[in-house]
């Protein structure tokens, strides 16, 4: 499962970084293994995605989101 599969409002934990194509800038914004990610909103044409990663609000494109492995947190 990747960030691109998340639905609006779902939260997940970021897994191991396997792709070399994830921009370093994204990691610096806190997109690192073990951190939380929440899908806040999807843009009108289903791309890009508005996320909260490790308390930082940012938006990335779907193609980048597909590179980030996550594990879904089931609703408490």
């Amino acid at each position: 499962m990747t960030v691109a599969n998340l639905k609006k409002g779902q939260k997940a934990i970021i897994g191991e970084m396997t792709s070399q194509d994830i921009p370093l800038k994204l990691l610096e914004m806190g997109c690192l293994p073990g951190n939380h990610v929440e899908l806040i909103q999807i843009a009108p044409f289903r791309d890009p995605l508005y996320l909260n990663i490790n308390d930082t609000y940012l938006s990335i494109r779907k193609e980048t989101a597909k590179l980030i492995n996550v594990e879904l947190i089931e609703d408490e």
Partner: peptide
């Protein structure tokens, strides 16, 4: 090119 796009959504 590798397209990548990271935008902070500030308060």
């Amino acid at each position: 090119f590798k397209s990548y796009f990271v935008v902070e959504m500030p308060n």
